[in-house]
């Protein structure tokens, strides 16, 4: 089984994030890292390789030149090789454009199972996995909290608002995983050094046969027209519990109609 893991290089969550003048995320001026949510997918792929279920694990990213750092991190955790789709024309792509590039790259690389995080930690859209599945005509199982592969069947558990679902689909399939699947291992120094020797292939839109007009600004189906800081919530009434705290809390809740 060949696994391709979709990973994203995102701004460091603890850094001060900024928007570029074109209202895209300023990725050049801020420290980046492999999206924490994709690390869970990298870990799952590595475990499947260790158990013998997978014989090849490839990491795929779409992003600027710096995104190579994210691939190196993934390769330190596991995997055999990586593919980096980098093209200036991709800048400004919406989820539709990004999913098109990923789907074309996946067709080129070949796959049995596509793994990815449930969302990126920057855009947090959670729609790209389903879009990729739709474009590939592959089976889909998203938001997996548990994942197992048996022969050519992948089974997951996912929790929706109203039910806990167990879903089994046959390969080829696209599966997104949540942080419930288990923390990624911390790579040892030797693995970090070893990752530098693993091959990273670079591809352009032309290599994938994607028309630049379908992606980036020209292909965008939506555009951000305004960003503003969330108005700071100001502290309301804070009381010290001198024995009447509970009563005051109940009064507050009653005053708002909650009880």
């Amino acid at each position: 089984m060949k696994i391709v893991v979709l990973v994203k290089y995102v701004p460091e969550p603890t850094a001060t994030w900024k928007f570029a003048p074109d209202l895209t995320v300023d990725r050049a001026g801020v420290e980046g890292r492999l999206s924490e949510l994709d690390e869970y997918a990298v870990e799952q792929a590595t475990r499947l390789a260790e158990s013998g279920a997978a014989d090849e694990v490839v990491f795929l990213t779409v992003g600027p030149a710096k995104a190579t750092e994210g691939l190196r991190k993934a390769l330190a955790i596991g995997g055999t090789s990586a593919v980096h789709v980098v093209d200036d024309a991709i800048h400004g792509s919406c989820a539709l454009g990004t999913s098109l590039v990923l789907a074309k790259a996946l067709e080129k690389i070949g796959y049995d199972l596509v793994l990815t995080g449930m969302a990126s930690t920057d855009a947090e859209l959670s729609v790209v996995p389903s879009m990729v599945a739709d474009r590939l005509g592959a089976n889909q199982a998203t938001f997996a909290g548990e994942l197992s592969v048996d022969g050519s069947t992948v089974s997951i558990r996912r929790d929706t608002d109203v039910a806990s679902e167990r879903v089994s689909v046959s390969l080829p399939a696209v599966v997104s995983v949540t942080d419930q699947t288990g923390e990624a291992r911390y790579p040892a120094f030797k693995a970090i050094m070893g990752a530098k020797k693993k091959p990273i292939q670079t591809m352009s839109l032309a290599d994938l046969g994607v028309d630049a007009a379908q992606v980036g600004w020209s292909g965008a189906s939506s555009k951000v027209v305004d960003v503003s800081p969330t108005p700071a919530r100001t502290a309301g009434t804070i009381v010290n519990d001198d024995g009447t705290g509970a009563a005051q809390l109940a009064d507050f809740l009653a005053g708002r109609g909650f009880i």
């Binding site: 700071a232 705290g245 509970a246 009563a247 009880i259």
Partner: peptide, 22 residues
């Protein structure tokens, strides 16, 4: 800092007492 209402106190004392109110 972002609370509309806050009680500085032991939740084990405050919560049960406030919920018995309702």
């Amino acid at each position: 800092q972002i609370a509309d209402f806050g009680v500085v106190g032991d939740l084990h004392a405050v919560l049960p007492a406030s919920s018995t109110r309702s």
